[in-house]
Simulated scan of single mutants.
Amino acid sequence: MTPGSPLLFGYGTNGLADLRLDDALALLADLGYDGVGLTLDHMHLDPLAPGLAERTRRVARRLDALGLQVTVETGARYVLDPRRKHGPSLLDPGPRDRDRRTGLLLRAVQVAAELGAHAVHCFSGVLPAGTDEDTAWKRLADALGPVLDAAASAGVPLAVEPEPGHLLATLADFHRLRRTLGDPGTLGLTLDIGHCLCLEPLSPADCIRDAAPWLRHVQIEDMRRGVHEHLPFGEGELDVPPVLAALAAAGYRGLTVVELPRHSHAGPHQAAVSLPFLRRAADTAQGSTP
């Protein structure tokens, strides 16, 4: 746990894609991070390569030795299809394509259970051309059914992320899915703080307060209002101390993971400067709390 703060800070491996996984984990431990957002990808615990169970056990031992907590993320761009970013999705017209994405999420649940992860992150996907929204929402709910069952059996929450440009893009969309599925206890929320600044009507801190009962995973980076571009801290418009104060007040105890997937070329540097920034912001938040 970060000194002086109840929050746990992590860094996403999708922002360290040029490093071997062992090297990335060692870097984060050396820098003082509490955990890691582990994106299952061809370079980092490939979910489709042979020997997944043994490789997962090896990573579990490594995380334990380094004292790192973990959340499993499934946002790899081309892990299922080398030609389609984030494809296939849970919304694709073809049942076999949807099943491939569901299969990836089922594997992610297994990996998360073995690693003792806080949650498994996922997203809806973009509305396919020629598909009406009602059909897409039904496909999403149907595709997530077996994943939620597996997550319940494994005791690992499934944390859906509202993603700009996707069918499920906002907190209101998350609540629509939650109601459609009958509010299952295993269904939670991944809240990307930059996305809140980008397109939610409420402030990021108010989004956290409203979402607190369902909050299972948090991603954080700087961003500008109305522009979906993940930025290093200090390059956007996010006021970080009120965000961290809201997370602490909500009693959130998962990881708050820095999400800079387009900065792998400078990943070690960004990891090195992001944690001190967050710690200073946490100290500021704590000092301003009555």
Rank of each mutant, 00 (worst) to 15 (best):
N14D: 03
G236V: 08
G116P: 04
F174Q: 05
G15C: 02
R84F: 11
L91D: 03
A159Q: 03
G75K: 02
S274F: 04
L140Q: 01
Q270T: 03
T71H: 07
R262D: 10
V72D: 08
S153H: 13
G103H: 00
D142I: 03
A117G: 07
A152C: 12
P162L: 10
D23E: 12
V70I: 08
S288T: 15
S274D: 09
A65R: 13
D183I: 03
S89A: 00
L115Y: 01
V126H: 12
H121Q: 14
G10P: 02
P213L: 03
G145P: 11
D64M: 07
P157E: 07
A249G: 13
A245E: 15
W137Q: 07
W214H: 07
D173W: 04
Y11L: 07
G236F: 08
L167W: 14
Q286H: 10
L244F: 10
A49H: 11
V109C: 02
R20M: 02
R62M: 08
H121N: 11
R279Y: 12
L52N: 07
L181K: 00
A60D: 01
L199E: 10
D18T: 07
A271E: 13
I193A: 05
L255D: 08
P242T: 09
L231S: 10
H195K: 12
L31W: 13
R178D: 10
A136K: 00
F9M: 00
A151S: 14
R139M: 01
R83D: 14
G32I: 03
R101Y: 01
L66S: 09
G35I: 03
D283P: 00
A245H: 11
P50F: 13
P3R: 13
W214G: 01
S5Q: 13
A136E: 06
H195L: 12
L7C: 15
D192P: 06
T74S: 03
R98I: 01
P95R: 01
P157Y: 01
A249W: 14
L171P: 08
V218C: 09
Q69F: 12
A141N: 15
E163R: 02
L104M: 12
D173I: 04
L68E: 04
R176P: 09
